[in-house]
Amino acid sequence: MQRRDDEAREPGPLAGRALRLVCYAVLVMAAASNLGSIVLAQGFPSRPLKLVVPMAQGGPADSGARLFASSLGDILGQNVIVENRSGASGVVGTEAVVKSAPDGYTLLFGSSSVFAVNPAVIPNLRFDVRRDLKLIGLLMQTDLVFASRPGVGANTLAELIKTAKAHPGKLSFASSGNGGITHLLAELLGLEAGISLLQIPFRGAGPAIIGMLSSDADLTASGIPGLAQHIKSGKAVGVGIASPARSPLMPDVPTFAEQGYPGVEAQNWYGVAVAAATPADIFETLDAATSKVLASAGFKATLEKIGMELMAMGAKEAAPYIVREIDKWSRVAKAANIRLDP
């Protein structure tokens, strides 16, 4: 059995009585999860499933994946084991799922990088996510916030554009890495506003934030949880949110759309997919179970704790959505001449 919250809540040294209580709790939960399981495809799933997470352990996305895996496991009545296969901005893990047996036992927990950015910036990928993967749905997202260091003259988008135009190429932007989503977001802003920012790539979003705070760069962008405390404490200024609506986590920061640039939009979102050749009945079982997870109140509440928002986009809408996203980022990558090797 997957470790469940109740079992885990057991604190410290195990007294006999507490242990017995835990056993009961586990039994009750096991019974409950059996009742709740749905049987569509005959006999599926008959063994544990594997959720491949193409990112390293530890970040909010990994926590989100683990949360989804345990909720999905409860509904399917089988363990869903998280396997981190990081490397080459997610290409390693994605390829592992593309090449896996299409029996529904290997799932991919992919991010916007995996589904939309990589296809746009890596011309010679050995697979096509549109053709080789079948999306079950998009589960969760975080809004991206654009931030500046106080005193660089970029407290609002208008100020940022004015400063960038007055000193072309001097305003620097700390990105989470070459060809990463924040790099593309900054380039998209550059294209729309007709400005050019000096790119300073870092190894990931965390180091990029530190880079901006320690004055190695003037601007950065990241998921809201990474920057929220720095904006709150005044070490960083929230310039704009790259989403259609303001974020409940940061209601004071206006969107780019409000500031006149509705086209500058990017989110970190996360979806789950299987190999394209997975049989339809198995796919439907997974689809129904995923919908159940997304509909549960507990899942939504825990997601919000780790700074994520529920996205809940089903298979039908998800497929055209990622095609649109790939097109958007391909346009940016082409205009800014961003291409990666692998």
Partner: peptide, 20 residues
């Protein structure tokens, strides 16, 4: 692996596991 500053892969030999 991939050079952080330029995004170019060095000594990758087409093995994705070496890109990082």
């Amino acid at each position: 692996g991939t050079d952080v500053s330029s995004g170019v892969t060095r000594y990758g030999f087409g093995v994705p596991e070496l890109y990082d």
